[in-house]
Design a protein around this nucleic acid. Structure first.
Lengths: 117, 117
DNA sequence: ACTCTATATGCAATTTATTGAATGTACGAT
DNA sequence: ATCGTACATTCAATAAATTGCATATAGAGT
């Protein structure tokens, strides 16, 4: 496999509107599948599929917290690319969880977290 | 069209091994189709097709010199992305035409150019 | 053990991208 | 006018990506 092949395979992960948006969310703070589902307004299997693609490629890291699985962008190369393509994440937007009225995920249900919104 | 859609469409242009390689060549110096053909070892219609894709999207600019059409990467956004993904082009590798023994393009036939190889 | 919840997986239908190959065109040289 | 060169276009075959939907699983709570 040439360098160009390796790079283009990873670029393909970004070169998709829904995945790009998902990456833009997950580079800010870890989110669970059900939160992504509410945020992106897509059926859960759809979210899981895209997450899987990114996870298999080593772009996302997963972390179980109770019932939920939280994903975050954990790949430095991808993070650098995202910074270049989307612009860097402003300091004040980091680690902020976007609360959603119709989201059932634990972060959206806890009052303490609501303070950051 | 959302931002994510616009960006992913342009990212798709890079997310292809042959086009990425072509872009890597054309960000260094302008080259004609027949030279790309020799460099990349692909049939001429194949080269023309990929060139067209990139040209239509505004990534490449074309310039006629005699019989030949030279293409170069003219889009600042794409150039920045290429720098991020492939690393910047070293100063000493800029504007250098890679001479090929089996290439019939004018640059490869002129002795003066040979000095830079 | 049953149930509920969060998430994962499998599969088929469709769409889109990729590639090869034939053919077309424009233009300079003879 | 015809020929050759450089490049462009078109089309069809194939491969790959995308998406929707049905279903599976694993673990927590009852």
């Amino acid at each position: 496999m040439t360098d160009y092949e390796r790079l283009s395979q990873r670029l393909k992960l970004m070169a998709h509107p829904e995945r790009l948006r998902m990456l833009d969310i997950l580079r800010r703070s870890p989110e669970c599948v059900c939160h992504l589902e509410a945020l992106m307004d897509r059926p859960q299997p759809y979210i899981s599929q895209q997450v899987r693609l990114l996870h298999r490629a080593g772009v996302l890291r997963s972390e179980k917290r109770g019932q939920n699985t939280f994903y975050r962008v954990a790949d430095p190369e991808m993070l650098a690319w995202l910074d270049q393509v989307l612009g860097p994440v402003p300091e004040e937007e980091r680690e902020i969880h976007h609360l959603l009225p119709d989201c059932v995920c634990p972060k959206c249900q806890r009052e303490e977290v609501r303070l950051y919104a």
